[in-house]
Computed example of a mutant assay.
Amino acid sequence: MSAYDSNPFADPVDVNPFQDASVTQATSGGNENVGEFNPFSAPDMGHHSGTTIPISAVSSQPAILQTSVEHSAKATATAAQADLLKQQEELERKAAELDRKEQELKNRTAGRANNGTKENNWPPLPSFSPVKPCFYQDFEEEIPEDYRRICKRMYYLWMFHCATLFLNVLACLAYFTVDSQNGVDFGLSILWFILFTPVSFVCWYRPVYKAFRSDSSFSFFFFFFVFFFQTAVYIIQTVGIPRWGNR
């Protein structure tokens, strides 16, 4: 009955649940640990710099490649492209040259198959001429590339020799018109022109042409012998001996 003796309208006892001994010990220990921890204390930040970098000091612009590096890369790419184009042009030129030579060889082979022999092409006479060419001459086909230049020079030397003989005829003719007693020189100059022009072609130009074409030692020997003899004759004529048909 004692429980019914209490006054239900009396003020309740003010009980603080946090005054329990276990709760008080836990809260007091946590406050001490929290009070001792300082994230901005000097020991914890000893390895950081004390200087603060303002945000405005940091560049907000994007990273840009230096101009010199760009120019160097562009120059290298341009040079490489130009080199490739040059090599390509060189290869195309060589390919075209090979195709041309191959076509010429096929044409020559076909012509030989039809005719059986090479068709003479020298001297270059018109088609209506009753006299036909007597020799076949082709530097590009018959003469090796190493000797082609000097062989052409020998051909030009022969042409110069013929032109000199013709000019000698004109000089003797002019001298004959002044003095009729020089008819012998004029007649001999015509003979030298008619004789030495074909003889020089057959006796020293054709041998040297054959020597370069087939690398013949006999042709070289024959050329040097005849050419030396003719050079000696011309040296004597340059002295100006009368009645020799030279002026």
Rank of each mutant, 00 (worst) to 15 (best):
Y209M: 03
I190N: 13
W192L: 02
L195S: 08
Y209G: 07
V178L: 09
D179P: 07
R206H: 11
Q181N: 15
T197I: 03
R213D: 07
D185F: 02
S189V: 07
V199Q: 03
D185H: 07
V208W: 15
F201M: 02
I190F: 14
G183C: 02
C172A: 10
I190D: 01
G183Y: 14
L188C: 03
V202I: 03
T177M: 09
F196V: 07
Y175T: 01
G183R: 08
C172T: 15
S216N: 15
P198Y: 15
V199H: 15
C203Q: 09
L188K: 14
S214E: 10
T197V: 09
F186P: 01
F201C: 06
S180G: 10
S180D: 05
W204V: 00
V199S: 09
Q181T: 12
L195G: 05
A174D: 03
L188G: 02
S180P: 13
I194A: 14
N182I: 03
G183E: 08
F212R: 01
F212W: 00
F201Y: 10
V208T: 12
V202N: 03
F201T: 12
W192Y: 14
A211M: 13
T177W: 14
L173F: 13
F196R: 04
F212Q: 00
P198F: 13
L195H: 08
S200I: 01
Y205T: 01
A174C: 05
L195V: 05
W192C: 01
V184K: 12
R206W: 10
F196M: 11
D215P: 04
R213W: 13
K210A: 12
S180L: 06
A174E: 01
L173W: 09
N182H: 12
S217P: 07
S216I: 10
R206C: 07
S189M: 10
I190H: 15
T177D: 01
A211L: 01
F176S: 02
L188H: 05
C172E: 06
L191K: 06
S200N: 11
C172R: 01
V178N: 06
F212K: 00
G187M: 13
I190E: 02
V184Y: 08
A211C: 06
C203G: 14
A211I: 00
P207T: 04
D185C: 05
R213Y: 08
L195T: 09
S180I: 05
A171F: 05
S180W: 12
G187W: 15
T177K: 05
S180T: 10
Q181L: 12
S200G: 14
L173G: 11
L195N: 11
V178C: 02
A171V: 14
V184S: 11
T197M: 05
K210V: 07
W192D: 00
F176E: 02
Y175V: 03
Y175F: 07
D215S: 15
Q181S: 13
Q181G: 06
S189I: 10
S216P: 13
T197R: 03
N182A: 09
S214V: 15
P207Q: 00
V178K: 14
Y175R: 08
C172F: 10
S200T: 11
A174Q: 06
L195K: 07
F196P: 01
G183D: 13
V184E: 03
L173D: 06
D185I: 02
